[in-house]
Design a protein around this nucleic acid. Structure first.
Length: 866
RNA sequence: GCCGAUGUGGCGAAAUGGCAGACGCAACGGACUUAAAAUCCGUUUCCGGUAACCCGGAGUAUGGGUUCGAAUCCCAUCAUCGGCACCA
């Protein structure tokens, strides 16, 4: 019947302070121009990846990154920064829509409920978000600007000379729709019958949908695309100036996949042998390939087209039509999964046609095979079996000629077959004896001079498939008239989706919005676009909206943008100072957001070319059983359950004490208990229980300077905690504070100044406890103001950290033998003499001759013998 | 296959060229208590020795190397996790 006794009254303190903070608008960040705004303060923008508010609520994994950013935010405020620390909701998306399909509950309702639940949880953890800046991607006042940004993208193109986005009006060609950054294309898409929608490549995993795991097939459909490939170079090159983990940069580089090489044209042989360009009857009859190894051109003994390549129909000879068509049918029937199965044998079919190798005028056969992909390069390759693993396998299987053209070091030409690295050119009249670099330059120059090819760069990155056949997303601000698309005027935004009762997919690939007949009909001769935008759209720019969330004239005001997203450190390209989130967004969200940012930057709306200067990925928190937290294993932990027993401060501290932020680590309730004991020790350091069982300020607390030893630990702790917060090493910061608290507990004096410093250091981690204790101390000892948040972060005194005596480690041959203490000012010679006089050292040396003595001042002596 | 990360006590971890295992958990012992909880104090890498203060040896995935000295730097191997994957 009696509740379990709390180690300290967090259940009273925490709600008290949370209410006070709300009432005082304690975390509201002021924009330039607002009353009380202090322009002398530097800004700090610390951002979390905002969540999708699911029905399940938060589990303990979510607040890991949020706690880290909250500590930084509170720390920076104490250091005198004007801190922007906002939170919002990425609330468009499939789960709410599927819930609507099942229950008929409108996603607006579900979203509102889920957001309320998430917000309650976040508030109960005591995060210092500026809730007056809350944004929600499904709010018309927000997506009005998502649609507006889409229109900017739609109305722009990349000028190849400046490589920058410009208004489409500067384009001088005759078909602007061909160069717009948003365009419509008939593309093979990932169609998921079960979800009734297409998916982006990134949302398909092993031939199945990322959401739900349903089968996905290829199917051509008319889709909106965003021309992200026009920014491939900048997205790659501008990673350099960002403080991101190298692994994330590597993932993005890999995803963009830039390859330097050459385009080469192979004339199709019409039985007349090789003809110089000018004499050719049919100048179009060439096969263009892309290769990263033009230096191996003399080794190209055959060509392969992708089975889907339209050229196949033109070149296939009468005799081979049957077998070619049969092969293409088998390939078309295969799923993506089967096609990309690496283990399988090479397959292919001969077209009967031949091409001419422009280098040596050899007549080489043209095949089709599914190991050549239509979607990369030109959908055709030159086969160089001697120096390409796949080509070699293919040539051996179909008995095609193999000519080595690069010599492996120390090997004969014959042995160099299968050598994939670079080397000296052989069997290549124009290139013999040249190194890879020389040969590559020479052959490309030759190709360019003779009109057979040119330098070229290709990317793995594809344009972004931007439309979805869904209800719960931003409608496109676009109408169709006479088969052509037109942008809506800005004045017509926001374009809200129609009210629908039936959210089910139509099943035909036509979006659910097509069911709203009245809504679609825009005018006598125009209809609305019925696709919606993908969930990534809203998250591409939310960090900008946080700077100025209520602005109804612009997506973000100029001045707030310049203040929060710019800064005085000129050579930093990014705006947000610290961005923490899951590694699962390493390529998609982070690449898309960078892309939008660059478009808006080119148009002069933004101060910096990159959105996020410093990025950190928090590691996943596993269940107590070491498995990923999921309903399936029944190992999900709700933060509110933990807070109920141990309090929010203990929850926060434990999340940070578990281990390094970036690392994956398992949850442990016992661990929370340990951290909770630490906080209770802090409490009892300052408070005691009176006869009536009430907590009152301890009578021993006095306004005195601490003794030397605790004072030294105190200053060592200021130094360590400050440094650790800057590097996000929160686990070791907490360890150090535990050491301090142990020392203060054992110290004879209960020193108010020491306690104040401790409370300040601990405040970002355990804000409720430290606020309460600070206030209690202030009531009796009026030295400090009664609000801990109005204080300055403590500084340490280096002179207090110096030792007067130093412990020196004695080693013999690198092995520890003893420790001695020497005076601070002992010379190397004195230290060495003391070491050699040491009995244990002498024992270990035995009778052996001393060859060398290494003295590291203030650290150790190593005696090397024999 | 390619790219990246990780590998240290019973467990989470610390130490990034100089005392391996800070801090915490768990376990064990002690104090307080009629008792328990809570709290406080102590022990706790492994092996061997000693009545004992202690003494000796080994030890950071494995094998080599650099160095007076390596968990830390280099080379190779193995394992686990993540990403990409017939990208020409």
């Amino acid at each position: 019947m009696n509740e379990r006794r709390k180690p300290y009254p967090f259940d009273r303190i925490e709600p008290k302070w949370q209410t006070l903070w709300d009432e005082r608008r304690a975390f509201h960040a002021l924009n330039p121009g607002e009353e009380n705004f202090d322009p002398a303060k530097p800004k700090y923008y610390v951002l979390d990846m905002f969540p999708y508010p699911s029905g399940a609520g938060l589990h303990v994994g979510h607040p890991e990154g949020y706690t880290a950013t909250d500590i930084i935010a509170r720390y920076k405020r104490l250091r005198g920064f004007n801190v922007l620390h906002p939170m919002g909701w990425d609330a468009f998306g499939l789960p709410a829509e599927q819930y609507a399909i099942k229950t008929g509950q409108h996603p607006v309702i579900t979203t509102r409920e889920n957001v309320a639940k998430f917000k309650t949880q976040l508030k109960r953890i005591g995060f210092s978000y500026d809730w007056e800046r809350e944004v929600n991607t499904t709010d018309p006042n927000y997506y009005k600007w998502t649609q507006w940004i889409f229109l900017q993208i739609y109305n722009s193109w990349v000028n190849p000379e400046t490589k920058k986005a410009e208004p489409i009006s500067t384009y001088r060609g005759n078909d602007p729709d061909n160069v717009r950054l948003a365009y419509v294309a008939e593309v093979p898409v990932n169609w998921c019958q079960e979800l009734g929608t297409v998916l982006a490549n990134e949302e398909v995993i092993d031939g199945k949908s990322e959401v739900g795991g349903f089968p996905v097939v290829r199917r051509p459909m008319r889709q909106w695309m965003l021309r992200i490939t026009a920014f491939a170079d900048r997205l790659l090159d501008e990673l350099k100036g960002l403080d991101w983990p190298d692994s994330i940069k590597a993932l993005q580089r890999n995803w963009i996949g830039r390859s330097k090489g050459a385009e080469i044209d192979f004339p199709i042989d019409r039985g007349m042998g090789f003809q110089p360009m000018s004499h050719r009857q049919d100048a179009d009859a060439t096969i263009r390939v892309f290769t990263t190894r033009p230096d191996t051109l003399y080794g190209a003994t055959y060509m392969v087209l992708a089975p889907e390549n339209p050229l196949v129909d033109q070149i296939t000879t009468e005799e081979h039509r049957g077998s070619i068509s049969q092969y293409r049918t088998t390939i078309a029937a295969k799923s993506d999964l089967e096609r990309t199965d690496l283990a399988k044998e090479k397959t292919g079919a001969f077209t009967g046609a031949f091409a001419i190798n422009p280098a040596n005028h050899e007549r080489i056969p043209i095949w089709i095979a599914d190991y050549v992909l239509m979607g990369y390069g030109t959908g055709a390759i030159m086969g160089v079996p001697a120096h390409d693993e796949r080509d070699l396998e293919f040539a051996r299987k179909f008995d095609l000629q193999i000519i080595p053209v690069v010599q492996a070091p120390g090997k004969t030409p014959e042995e160099s077959i299968g050598y994939l690295e670079v080397g000296i050119a052989i069997n290549s009249p124009l290139l013999n004896g040249l190194s890879h670099v020389e040969a590559t330059t020479k052959i490309i120059d030759w190709l360019e001079q003779n009109g057979h090819g040119r330098r070229d760069i290709r990317y793995k990155l594809r344009d972004w498939l931007f439309s979805r056949q869904r209800y719960w997303g931003e409608p496109f601000p676009v109408i169709w008239r006479n088969g052509k698309h037109e942008a809506l005027a800005e004045s017509e935004l926001p374009l809200e989706p129609p009210a629908l009762e039936d959210f089910k997919p139509t099943g035909t690939g036509e979006p659910p919005l097509a069911k709203a007949k009245d809504w679609i009909r825009y005018s006598e001769d125009a209809v609305r676009e019925t696709n919606t935008m993908p969930q990534w759209a809203g998250s591409c720019w939310y960090y900008l909206r946080f700077c100025d969330p209520q602005n109804d004239r612009r997506f973000v005001g100029e001045e707030p943008e310049r203040y929060w997203m710019g800064d005085s450190i000129a050579d930093r390209p990014g705006g947000v100072d610290l961005y923490i989130g899951g590694v699962e967004h390493a390529v998609l969200h982070l690449l898309y957001a960078r892309f939008w940012h660059k478009v808006l930057f080119d148009f002069g709306y933004l101060s910096k070319p990159e959105p996020f200067q410093r990025l950190v990925n928090q590691g996943m928190i596993l269940g107590e059983d070491g498995r990923k937290m999921s309903k399936r294993w029944g190992n999900v932990i709700d933060p509110l359950d933990v807070i109920e027993i141990y309090g929010a401060d203990a929850f926060r501290c434990y999340e940070m004490f578990m281990g390094p932020l970036e690392q994956m680590k398992p949850w442990s309730m016992k661990g929370v208990e340990g951290v909770s004991r630490f906080l209770a020790r802090v409490w009892r350091l300052i408070m005691e229980e009176n006869q009536a069982g009430e907590w009152i300020l301890s009578g021993e607390v006095e306004e005195v300077v601490p003794d030397k030893s605790p004072l030294k630990i105190l200053h060592a702790t200021i130094k360590k905690v400050t440094g650790d917060i800057e590097t996000l090493s929160f686990n070791t910061a907490i360890s150090q504070m535990m050491i301090l608290v142990n020392a203060l507990t054992n110290a004879p004096k209960k020193s108010v100044p020491a306690f104040r410093t401790l409370l300040l250091l601990l405040n970002p981690f355990a804000p409720h406890l430290t606020s309460e204790l600070w206030q209690t101390l202030a009531e009796k000892f009026p030295g400090g103001a009664d609000d801990i948040m109005a204080q300055r972060w403590p500084e340490y005194d280096e002179t207090l950290l110096v030792e007067d005596e130093i412990e020196i480690v004695l080693q013999v041959n690198g092995k520890l033998r003893d420790k001695i203490t020497v005076a601070l000012d002992a010379t190397n010679a004195e230290t060495e003499a003391a070491a050699l006089a040491n009995k244990k050292v002498q024992n270990a040396v035995g009778g052996q001759a001393i060859r060398k003595v290494v003295v590291v001042p203030k650290k150790l002596v190593n005696v090397v013998t024999g």
